[in-house]
Design a protein around this nucleic acid. Structure first.
Length: 546
RNA sequence: GCCCCCUUAGCUCAGUAGGAUAGAGCACAGGUUUCCUAAACCUGGGGCCGCAUGUUCGAAUCAUGCAGGGGGCACCA
């Protein structure tokens, strides 16, 4: 629908003798303004130094009788408001039914390759709720961009080198000794969760007291490896239970093993971006807008984490992605300038890397915050929440907000099976449609074929409103892809369900009038197509029955 | 001290490449079921878009300042 209109408008603008800008569309707030509006004349006003209304008039004049428009008029400061012919809406609806999701798919990515890195939680503890939000957002964004014509790769970066996993190993080692009745000091900033003891117990199960006589010096390699691998497999399982599959897992150790860190440093050195000072090796990130320069190799010869991050991001750009997306917790925002500096130092534009920050989640139970203390190792894990409210609900709630705004997650509301719970509201619309079709089959109305249906029978205000909403899905989809914002789909689905339920209540689909019933069934089918598509982008099931 | 994010209805939040009289859900008040799932629907009240100045024909949206909330500053990870 929009593409037809866009073509017509672009042609008209060109005949004014100027380049057409990207033509935006919106659904007018009030129905009396028509079905579709574009403010395209307004930005042209500056360029042409003429009032927007007069430009809009010219555009409308140039369009003339072209296009499937019942009415096309100028309103407000210079909007061009369009009302479609009924028959056009019918034929578009027919197109949606025959092409299904192909109707609103657009190739916006043009096959461009894009890597999305997300979750990437340290393998030093179980995934908590915040990781879950990153996971839901990352997976939905991947689905969205794939549907929008990008070639997407989802990657998880494993911090399996350095101090953190070492601390994990030491924590487990301490618990191991203690479980065997040997006094052993627990490290000051060690990991205190119960899972540490679980791992230690597992080691005893498999290897008994073989390591009890050793110091951490000697047993460390084993404890570190065993522990982080155990954590990683828990993480992997939690993600799978959450319905999230990665295409690749990049290990930090692997970057060292393959000399990628060394290569990256040499690369930066040859570009003149490094210098030595006080016995340390620095990256001059201030050349690219960072607050201060950053250390890559410390005075004691150790690499900082930033060193492997440089290697990692260098590898990302070398692998030829057209765009790189990193999804991070908001507490890492201070890291953006230095990583961006790396991208630029390597000769790529800063926009090549897009960092999406995911804000925190506050867990509520019955309106009251659930206390979490990271120090004591007490936090609510993703796994616990999935077990309590289900993976689909959890994902949907994560996607009902912009990722960069705080989210309040109320467990009681999430479990509610009523319209108070937006997930149920949307899924129930789909289930309800299925049950209408079941009913139709019982009454002997063939619902499978939509040939020869008289769509003009769909003439109530509710029906027209729904048809227009369905056709507008293309716009929502397009906007979501361009902005990289899956939550727009979530909002759309809630609105669509919000049109369907009242319609269901007001108009019977299956009546004695067979032709009318078939037309209404077709409308329901179209709603189902869109609901299913939207939900699948969000990574959420569309249950047939609830 | 410096940097980033947030501030929109009682609550939770949409809306920001500037555009029409600022929206939704929940909560609140009242109503609806001989009918495909009442797990639903209808009606209603509700706003200094944190404050101030500026840019503009036009600002919730842009700029500057201030206030409040959150996060971050390292040869930590």
């Amino acid at each position: 629908m929009i593409n037809d209109v866009r073509r017509i408008i672009v042609n008209a603008v060109k005949r004014l003798g100027i380049e057409a800008p990207f033509v935006e569309f919106e659904i007018p707030r009030e129905e009396k303004f028509g079905d579709l509006a574009t403010p395209v004349a307004m930005p042209l006003s500056k360029q042409l130094k003429r009032p927007p209304r007069s430009i809009a008039e010219d555009i409308v004049k140039l369009i003339g009788k072209e296009g499937p428009f019942e009415k096309i008029e100028i309103a407000g400061p210079g909007f061009i408001n369009i009302t479609f012919k009924g028959e056009y809406l019918c034929s578009e609806l027919k197109g949606l039914l025959s092409k299904k999701e192909g109707y609103f798919r657009q190739d916006l990515g043009n096959g461009r390759r894009i890597q999305i890195e997300f979750v990437s939680a340290n393998p030093t503890g179980p995934l908590h709720l915040g990781h879950g939000k990153g996971a839901a957002v990352g997976a939905a964004l991947s689905n969205l961009l794939t549907a929008g014509g990008y070639r997407v790769e989802k990657e998880y970066y494993i911090n399996d080198a350095g101090r953190q996993v070492r601390m994990l190993g030491l924590s487990v080692f301490a618990r191991y000794q203690q479980l065997l009745g040997i006094e052993y000091p627990f490290p000051e900033d060690g990991y205190r969760g119960d899972y540490i003891e679980d791992i230690a117990r597992k080691i005893i199960e498999l290897h008994g007291n073989r390591y009890s006589e050793m110091g951490f010096q000697e047993a460390g390699v084993f404890f570190i490896d065993f522990s982080y691998k155990a954590m990683l497999s828990d993480i992997d399982r939690d993600l799978k239970d959450f319905g999230i599959i990665f295409d690749s897992w990049q290990s930090e150790r692997d970057l060292y093993a393959r000399s990628e860190v060394e290569k990256a440093i040499n690369d930066l050195r040859s570009r003149g971006c490094l210098y030595e000072e006080n016995g340390a090796l620095w990256f001059r990130s201030t050349d690219f807008g960072d607050d201060k320069d950053r250390v890559i190799i410390k005075g004691d010869g150790e690499f900082t984490y930033f060193a492997s991050d440089i290697a990692y991001h260098r590898m990302k750009v070398e692998r030829g992605f057209d765009e790189i997306v990193d999804i991070w917790g908001a507490d890492h925002h201070g890291y953006i300038p230095r990583v961006r500096a790396v991208i630029q130092a390597l000769g790529h534009p800063a926009e090549h890397l897009k960092v999406l920050l995911v804000q925190m989640v506050t867990l509520l139970r019955g309106g009251k915050p659930v206390q979490m203390s990271k120090r004591a190792g007490e936090f609510v894990t993703l796994k616990e929440v999935i077990e309590e409210v289900g993976a689909d609900t959890t994902k949907f709630i994560f996607l009902t907000r912009r990722p960069d705004s705080h989210l309040e997650f109320d467990l009681e509301v999430a479990k509610e099976q009523s319209s108070e719970n937006p997930v149920f509201y949307v899924q129930y619309a789909n289930a309800r449609i299925n049950s209408i079709f079941a009913n139709a089959r019982e009454k002997g109305i063939e619902a499978g074929e939509f040939e020869g249906i008289d769509f003009n029978l769909l003439s109530t205000p509710e029906e027209l409103r729904i048809i227009k909403k369905l056709l507008a899905y293309t716009m929502t989809f397009e906007g979501a892809v361009i902005a990289h914002e899956p939550h727009r789909i979530t909002f759309y689905l809630q609105e669509l369900a919000g049109l369907f339920h009242p319609y269901y209540n007001r108009c019977r689909v299956i009546t004695d009038d067979k032709e009318l019933s078939r037309a209404r069934l077709a409308l329901c089918e179209a709603i189902r197509v869109v609901l299913k598509d939207g939900l699948s982008i969000l990574g959420i099931k569309a249950p047939e029955r609830m």
